[in-house]
């Protein structure tokens, strides 16, 4: 028997490392699929249209919302990491910068989601 050890109680930095890695892997797989579906146009334009048409369904609409969320988080946390690597001030205030990243994320998603979801579910 081998009982589960506790989850290490790291702080903001550790969780943002996890967020960065998770969103990074998710974006990578999206790009992989995206390159494949775009390259379909060389094979058969009809097949391409059919695959691209699938993106208009509500399920893909929600996945797209997730994709934008992942990219916004990854982008702004990436800027935080660059700042932390470059300036001692940012290094010492990295925990506060984590909340700045989440703040920007909330603002951007608040601007994006109503419009996007309106398109997806409003049938515009």
């Amino acid at each position: 028997m081998s009982p589960a050890p506790t989850l290490y109680r790291g702080r903001e930095g550790m969780w943002m490392w996890l967020v960065h890695r998770t969103t990074g892997v998710a974006i990578f797989f999206f790009l992989l699929i995206h390159v494949l579906d775009t390259s379909l146009v060389r094979v058969s334009p009809e097949a391409y249209n059919e695959v691209i048409g699938a993106y208009k369904t509500p399920i893909y609409g929600l996945i797209e919302a997730g994709l934008v969320a992942a990219i916004v988080l990854h982008a702004f946390n990436g800027l935080r990491i660059i700042a932390v690597d470059r300036w001692t001030w940012a290094l010492r205030h990295q925990r506060m910068l984590v909340w700045v990243v989440w703040g920007i994320f909330v603002v951007m998603m608040a601007a994006f989601l109503p419009r996007h979801l309106g398109h997806v579910f409003g049938g515009a």
Binding site: G10, R11, E12, G13, M14, H20, D85, Q94
Partner: peptide
């Protein structure tokens, strides 16, 4: 190093390890 800062927070001597 992925700048998770767990080292800096764990150091009992207060060394700014990530720095």
């Amino acid at each position: 190093c992925r700048t998770a800062f767990n080292c800096t927070e764990a150091c009992p001597r207060g060394i700014e390890v990530t720095k």
